[in-house]
Design a protein around this nucleic acid. Sequence first.
RNA 1: CGGGGCGUGGCGCAGCCUGGUAGCGCAACUGCUUUGGGAGCAGUGGGUCGUAGGUUCAAAUCCUAUCGCCCCGACCA
Length: 586
Amino acid sequence: MATEMRFDFHGQPLGLRLSRGFVPTLKEDPADAEVVSHKLLIRAGFIRKLAAGIYSMLPFGLRSMRKMERIVRLEMHRAGAIELLLPAVQPGELWKESGRWDFYGKELLRFKDRHDRDYIIGPTHEEVITDLARREIRSWRDLPVNLFQIQTKFRDEIRPRFGLMRGREFVMKDGYSFDADEDGADKSYRAMYEAYAKIFQNCALKFATVEADSGAIGGSYSHEFMVLAETGEDGLVFCDCGYAANQEKAELKDYPTLPPEDASLALEKVPTPNRRHVPELAEFLKVPEGRIIKAMLFESGEGPVMVLIPGDREINPVKLKNALGGTEPRLLTPEEAEKLTGAPMGFVGPMNTNIPVVADHGVKRMGGGVIGAGELDQHYLHARLDRDFTVGRWFDLAQAGDGDPCPRCGKALSTKRGIEVGHVFKLGVKYSTAMNAVYAGADGQERPLIMGCYGIGVGRTVAAAIEQNHDRDGIIWPMPLAPYEVALLPLQVQNAEVAAASEKLFQDLMDLGVETVLDDRDERPGMKFKDADLIGYPLRLTISEKSLAAGQVELKRRDTREVTMLNLADAAATLRRLRDEGLGAK
RNA sequence: CGGGGCGUGGCGCAGCCUGGUAGCGCAACUGCUUUGGGAGCAGUGGGUCGUAGGUUCAAAUCCUAUCGCCCCGACCA
């Protein structure tokens, strides 16, 4: 009886004969890939590079992406969002209106059409959706509205790297909510937050939700969804009390510093030949690093500024940016710093300076310490705050890390690394005000729409799944994202019995709705095993003359590498059950 | 944008310093053998050496320009 192909609800085939598939696997690592997900996606035949940061999705890569998209769609719809599709190409006019034409920088890919009009390829769609909303949403009766799309974006990154983790062209789910009031907006935000948590649960990924930097927009807040992986680009802090934040954002209150020195100690100028950096200065002066006050000069939106921080602490650039009014602070070059202060790099200090001084709270608790003397090879000992130098404004500027006190409960924080795969953001009225997107309230008054925006990196989640789940043989797909769930490996394809048993299993599995690859290639067993491990099918069934003689087939789980023998007669049903367990709660 | 590196059959690389007929492994194709962890033997095909200019009797090799790709950095005084 001929095997009959089956298809799922979305029109995707439930089965594939590998001999007719397009899955070009590589034995060796590609030369131009660095991170593991990039290497494995290429080696396993999921993607191929076309240009820097631009990839073709091969059939298996596309299947994993499509599965991710399905999971996203389902939860979006459950949460009441509605799918649409906005144009990728957008008129520059809209971006000029929102102010981002000048603000967004070179990441925004711009070009002109034949009439010399400005266009861009969308890196995100706030402008387009806001334009749509202001045209179509008239009254409070139309609200709330929550719209999303899954679409290819383009961001001309300075340095694309890490394959699908940070491409220039990438697929993103972006959603936007519109509400009449703050309560409604908070409700929309909450619904998206919960939907996101379900999405990453449904992907069977280990993830965390953290408070994220909300930028310079007052009153707004945001959360990031991070897939936990050693190789993640973001540092995260956690507390037993439930507090979790991106290091960029994590508050640091009253962390311990050295107590103030004896107030009777007089200011003392000491030579510090060529000791520019905190560690060498501390060693030379025989003082702890925490006794030194580090001074750094930045160019901010309001001119140059001197930033003070305890010597054993690092400045958190995002906190500094927010403290200085939202423009990206730029560290002055040694030449600029010397020109400005007269002191060479490493000897700049806050005494008798006319540059505005801001400082981290920790400096206040130190009460003073070692400072640069403002001239070459000289520092001051026992400099005291308010006696010898003053600070204009105080901020929380230090980076929180392992062991620092939790801002909620004071217990010690721990750190992990993660990959940002989702971000929910309460926008407020930033775009609706800039673009005059208003609705008529019940009282007839016009008010700006209150917006939220919500993004998921679809391709990045697929890559993050690999960063989190792999071994030296290849990918270990979580069931929900695997391109196919089961691989059938007939070891002797020319043996009639093996072939017949494999065909029957192939048909039975498809009939049971299990996504199955039949590796019907006339290849040696070793090659089939290696490919199956590399591609990372969660379940593998080996059909051989040997085991078939006993009426059995061999099952191997990719995650635990556990091997069990199954009776041929109920193998398909067992696989179906294991598949369903692997899919978890839906 | 700054620094470093690399472009040589489909993939991974050697050859370049010291100019002289373009090589290796894998892959592909044919045949025989083999068949539970990327097989063995024999044979075959496939390369404007990124591109353009220059030097030279002669350029993959030296020089210049250019394009592409990768890595590091672009906050830690």
